[in-house]
Each structure stands twice: as C-alpha cells, then as structure tokens.
Amino acid sequence: MAERQESERLVKLLSQQGDVLVGRWIEGVSHTLRGRLSVLELDRELRELYSALVEGLRAGGPDWRGEGWSEVRALLTELSRNRARQGFSPTETATAVFALKELLVPDTDTSQQDFAAYLELNRLVDALGLFTVETYSKTREEIIGAQAEQLLELSTPVVKLWDGVVAVPLVGTLDSARTQVVMEKLLQTLVDTGSEQAIIDITGVPAVDTEVAQHLLKTVVAARLMGAECTISGIRPQIAQTIVALGIQFGDIVTKATLADALKHALRRIGTSPEAAAATVRGAR
C-alpha cells in the first residue's frame, strides 16, 4: 500500500532528527503564545504530543481516526480544552498544530518519496488542526453553558424571611426556563427548611407572558400539593392587566401588593402575629 509506505517514510523523517525538530516546533509555538504559557509546560505538552504522533503514524498509519491514534487525539483534546479554559484564541490554539508543517520543508534535493511523505504530513496536520479547533469550540460552548447556569442560580436566590417563611424576589425578565428553575428551587427550599409559607415577589419583573404566568400558577398549586402555601406579591398594574387579558385564572391564589404585606399575611398564617414578630426584631437589636 502506497500510503503505508509514506507513513513509514514519515516516521523515519520525524524520528531521524527528532530532538532538533521538536525543539524547533516548541520554539515556533512559544512565539505565538508570547509567554502566556510557561516554557516548561509547553515543552512537556508538545514533546508528549510529538512522540504520540510518531507512534500513531507507526502503529496506525495515515488513518488518524483509527485505534493507533487514540493517544494523539486524547492529548490534542486535553491541549485544546486547556487553551480554551485559559482564554487563548482559536488561532493561537490551532497554530500549535499547524506549526508542525514547517518542520519538514521540501527543497530542490527532496526525493519523490520524501515529497509524498511531506504531503502526507500536511494532510494529517490539517485534519488534526481542525480536530483541535472543534474541540476548542466545544469546550467554549460548555463554559458558556455552565456560566449561563450559574447566572441562573445567582439570579434566583431563595431567602428565608422568618422561621417557616421563605421568599424568592424575582428581578428582570422572566423566561420559561428561568421560571422553571425558580419553581424547582423554591419548592425544594420549602422541604429543606420545613417552611409552610412561600412568597414569590415579582416587584422587579416588568412583564410576564402566558407561559410564565402559567409557571407561577403551577408553582402555587405544586406548593399546595406539598403542604405549603404560596403568596405572590408585587404584581405591577401592567402584569395584572396582562393576566386578565390573557384569561389566566388566578382563582383563589393569594396575592399581595407588596412583599411586606405578603410577609404579614404569611406570619399570620403560621400563627405568629406581625406585631409580635416586630417586637422580637426590636428585642433582638
């Protein structure tokens, strides 16, 4: 098989002056990273990759997706993941791989056989470079996804207002996904804290659509199924209009104008008078 021969020739070319070639490669790459990665680390990374590459060619031939290349793919995945996390650009990441091409440059004395091997290397490096970029962007997507999730967590704090009363003050636009997260978190907090009263305060919410209003309603019903009561406070006039216009039945759900009113209501429901609660607070001061 011709390709097999080229791979073997390539193995020979890359091994003959292995140390010199790796050294040149590392130097070339370190320029593009401008000292943002320690030379030692880069050295270790690329040396490992280089020997894996030669080994891959030796064992697996030109088929870089094959069994023999698994070590190379693993190392490249690690490299691009690290680069993505450390904030290197896609170009900087891919250049590390593409720089391999410059290690073997044909001249007029190059034999036909070597030339074929060079082309083979080019083809391989292109494929591996693309693989690197793909892994890089996948990692970036993961990072963005995780950040979005964190943001969601941060933007929906469930706070304990009193013994037996928890509240979630919602701020900003509610979409269906976020409302669902709030709902789950609020209900879980009821169980964790043994609270029978929950308050959803939407003073900071400019508008709701049908889906969000439905989610709020479902939260209230779900809380009842668990043995708790849920009050919605801070409904703006526009939102009240929307709810009525959309024909959503709020039924017997307790709504209060402000968070303070809702807290008073909740305290009464758990058998603590708001006045006594206020006295406790003053006493504690």
């Binding site: 709902m183 789950e184 209900l187 879980q188 009821l190 169980v191 043994g194 609270s195 029978e196 479902k218 019903v221 779900a222 809380a223 009842r224 199924l225 668990m226 043995g227 708790a228």
Partner: peptide
C-alpha cells in the same frame, strides 16, 4: 410529597382538590 412529584402532578393535570396536605409526617 417531593417537589419533583408535585411539579409532575400539576403538569399531568391533577391537583388533588379536596385532599389536605402537609410537609412532613409530624405536621400531618
């Protein structure tokens, strides 16, 4: 009743009207 179960029941369309509920055995 666990939160996930409650959410699912509501989605299913079952609100168990008329059944009294409590958070824990003690409260019940």
């Amino acid at each position: 009743m666990r939160p996930a179960v409650a959410i699912t029941l509501v989605e299913l369309g079952l609100s168990l009207g008329g059944v009294r509920t409590a958070l824990s055995l003690e409260r019940g």
